[in-house]
Design a protein around this nucleic acid. Structure first.
Length: 550
RNA sequence: GCGCCCGUAGCUCAAUUGGAUAGAGCGUUUGGCUACGGACCAAGAGGCUGGGGGUUCGACUCCCUCCGGGCGUACCA
């Protein structure tokens, strides 16, 4: 069905054209005023037309109103206000009718198809497989997952991908580190690599391997031992990363391995392509990419003077591969320490001829863990990190996901452990979930009193302020989902959920649902059922559970 | 030095992407609830949106500048 906004937009356009104020191209802005006194929707068209018509905005507005022909059931009020805004108020009849659409749509309410099935890929977490996932990865995991779900909700075809850096120096260092620990357990001396991994998990891996495979690695040649142990360690770590993410409710469609690219020389192909296009030159024995031609601040090395391909070159090949898989929009979620890398990646993809704007990077800022008001210091070097697993054990999946998504990605996030562990009203997650549980309980209570959920209800009985406000809040949901997807702002979901829960609790305290008034009871049952639907749909997008009991 | 991000109520954050009187939660003060769950509700106090300048009908939002914090600035990944 047509929303009230669409209806009004159409009627406004008609009025404006009748007056000869605008052409077909003109965009009418309609938005929801912050202040209730300003109505349900407002437009600034009169003010926008000031310079074109050279007239007083309030007069223009009055003219528009005079030409506007709307159904009084839908638009109950329209007036000129402020500097030249036109404020519109929907009639209760409109809201009451719209409520039944929520019920009909059910789990589909809030979803749309404006993405037209376009193929979108979102790559995130992609932590080095050289250690356990930390809390920063936990934030990226939550944000990326919800972004992907938002894209799906508005009609895109989405794949979630994890890039595994299973080649190169880091992995070799991991092998050497494990090897050194392993040999030490056997009482043999092997030098621990300079920049090796000091975390406790390295020793634990060595111990596990010793138990599982005995001392057979000790007899191998050094190089061979490092190689085998690094492969073993990598797979073990990767599996535990998958396990943690799985427990977090996150399942990647693709785990893409860097070694695959190297094995089939994809980076060489890309190098050739860039060379043919004339964007590569040699200097001091190295091969450079002219990224400055595409807005980067300096040129970048693709192949070192030692003949080694840089990480950058392989990464270009990786992104080219994504395009080869027919994705038309690519999103990467990176940590703040990689933001300097964005211009060169964009430059490379432009040089290869991929459309501008088809690739974007979202930088997820850092996470500070707070305990008793103090920042918990973490150091990767010393192996002192709070693992994602520990965090989940401490606060639970629902709380972690909600907290991580609740902030804008550009802002650093203070994760308050004490608040997160608090199972009382202070914790917004419980506040929202409680609203859902409370509704389930009321519906159950009604059934126990032989008031089954009605097939038909007279929604015109829902005229109280708290009832109308609740309906308004519910109807905001579809627009919220599409805006959140469009602007890559999943944090809007938690904000909205808190508002919705508050609006519901307010209604609950002013009005009783199950009463002797059969008709009214039925209407209110529909209202809370619709609230339950929207709460559940929003929580689903977040990957947070919607409990029936707490 | 240069580049990117951040700076909003005591604290943690929003603000429909340029709209009208900047809003929530926590904390604080006061008051409710013998009901379908008190993990709730109502009322109050709390602000020069880091400072200054500019753009225009209109700025938390865009531009310039300064201050403060974080990150980056490799033939590393």
């Amino acid at each position: 069905m047509m929303t009230g906004e669409q209806y009004l937009r159409e009627k406004l356009r008609k009025a404006l054209q009748e007056k000869g104020f605008v052409d077909d191209e003109f965009q009418i802005t309609l938005d929801r005023p912050k202040v209730a006194e300003h109505g349900d929707l407002a437009t600034n068209v009169a003010m926008v037309l000031v310079s074109k018509l050279r007239r007083n905005p309030r007069e223009i507005a009055a003219d528009i109103l005079q030409a506007l022909d709307v159904d009084a059931e839908i638009i109950a009020g329209a007036e000129v206000a402020g500097a030249g805004f036109i404020n519109f108020r929907f009639g209760n009849g409109y809201y009451q009718a719209a409520l039944s659409d929520v019920l009909t749509a059910g789990a589909e309410f809030g979803r749309s198809d404006c993405g037209n099935g376009e193929r979108v890929q979102i790559e995130f977490v992609s932590a080095n497989p050289t250690g356990p996932l930390n809390v920063v990865s936990a934030r990226a995991a939550a944000v990326g997952d919800v972004m992907a779900e938002l894209f799906k909700a508005v009609g895109y075809t989405v794949e979630k991908e994890y890039y595994v850096n299973d080649a190169g120096r880091q992995v070799r260092l991991l092998g050497k580190s494990v090897s050194a620990r392993y040999m030490k357990l056997l009482g043999k001396d092997e030098v621990f690599p300079d920049e090796g991994y000091h975390g406790d998990y390295v020793g634990e891996l060595a111990k596990t391997f010793l138990e599982q495979y005995g001392d057979r690695f000790a007899n191998l040649k050094e190089e061979k031992r490092w190689q085998e142990l690094s492969e073993l360690a990598l797979n073990t770590i990767l599996q535990s990363q998958k396990d943690v993410l799985g427990a977090y409710g996150l399942h990647f469609d693709i785990w893409f391995r860097e070694s695959d690219l190297r094995d089939r020389n994809a980076h060489r192909e890309v190098l050739d392509t860039l060379s043919e296009k004339g964007f590569v030159y040699e200097e001091k024995g190295a091969k450079w990419f002219k990224s400055t031609q595409f807005g980067d601040e300096k040129d970048r090395v693709l192949v070192t003077s030692e003949g080694e391909p840089t990480y950058f070159l392989v990464d270009i090949a990786y992104h080219a591969d994504k395009y080869d898989r027919d994705f038309t929009r690519l999103y990467d979620l990176w940590g703040p320490d990689h933001h300097g890398y964005v211009p060169r990646m964009k430059a490379a993809l432009l040089a290869l001829g991929y459309p501008e704007g088809s690739f974007d990077v979202i930088i997820i800022q850092q996470v500070n863990l707070l305990q008793a008001g103090e920042v918990v210091k973490m150091s990767k070097r010393a192996g002192k990190i709070i693992e994602m697993q520990e965090l989940l054990e401490e606060v639970g999946v629902d709380v972690a996901r909600f907290f991580f998504v609740a902030r804008r990605t550009q802002s650093p996030l203070d994760f308050d452990m004490d608040l997160a562990k608090n199972t009382s009203e202070e914790n917004p997650v419980y506040y929202v979930q409680y609203a859902h549980a409370r509704i389930c309980n009321i519906i159950k209570h009604a059934e126990e009193r032989d008031v089954p959920f009605p097939k038909q209800a007279n929604l015109k009985l829902l005229g109280q302020k708290e009832e109308i406000n609740l309906i308004k809040k519910l109807l905001e949901f579809p627009d919220l989902v599409s805006k959140a997807a469009q602007h890559l702002e999943p944090h809007r979901l938690p904000t909205y959920l808190q508002e919705l829960a508050a609006t519901f609790h307010r209604f609950y305290h002013h009005h009783r649902v199950v009463t002797d008034d059969k008709e009214l009871t039925n209407a209110r049952l529909v209202l809370i059922r619709c609230t339950q639907i929207v709460l559940a749909n929003a929580l689903k997008l977040l990957g947070v559970s919607a409990p029936e009991r707490m």
